[in-house]
Design a protein around this nucleic acid. Structure first.
Length: 157
DNA sequence: GCCAACGTTGGC
DNA sequence: GCCAACGTTGGC
């Protein structure tokens, strides 16, 4: 099983939205970045755990955990002219964009702030810290997951 | 709202 | 295939 981090703007769709969904499950769509798309299409698998990260807001950081319940399949918003995510160059025969379904697992009592994450000496390779933090879907190494989960949940391992 | 860093586009 | 121009992201 692999671990991931998905970024989201909590004003649009955050951990609370996910928790309040029917079945606490929601398609993770609207990803329009090729590197992130490749992860969704090729690598994210059912049963993988995902950190839900809140960006572009007052309290930036990891807010909770979700689990992948459906692996990559075409993101239907790319075919919908009324959608913000419409892509006229995408066809059903060869979809460009993919999404996965995620289910709520856990909300942390407190956001694990980006500042705290960056302060960890062994968290230096994560995409959050590199590349100016712009990638919206990124893998998290097992060791990094352990460290971050311990910090966020306050639980020992 | 600013601005740095990155991704995408399109002319050549 | 290069690279300048442009758009977007995201922390602050």
């Amino acid at each position: 099983m692999r671990h991931w981090l998905f970024k989201t703007e909590p004003d649009v769709f955050g951990i609370d939205h996910l928790q309040n969904r029917p079945d606490q499950t929601e398609p993770w769509d609207g990803v329009r970045n090729y590197q992130a798309r490749n992860f969704l299409r090729d690598d994210v698998a059912v049963g993988d755990n995902v950190f839900i990260y809140h960006s572009s807001c007052k309290n930036v950081g990891i807010a909770g955990v979700a689990e992948v319940v459906k692996a990559g399949y075409p993101d239907s918003t790319q075919f919908d002219p009324d959608s913000d995510y419409y892509d006229p160059k995408a066809t059903t025969a060869s979809p460009r964009w993919f999404r996965v379904d995620v289910k709520f697992v856990e909300k942390f009592n407190q956001i694990l702030s980006l500042q705290t994450i960056k302060a960890q000496p062994d968290i230096t390779e994560i995409g959050l810290v590199k590349k100016g933090g712009r990638l919206s879907i990124m893998p998290v190494e097992d060791k990094e997951w352990e460290t971050l989960y311990r910090l966020a949940s306050g639980k020992g391992t």
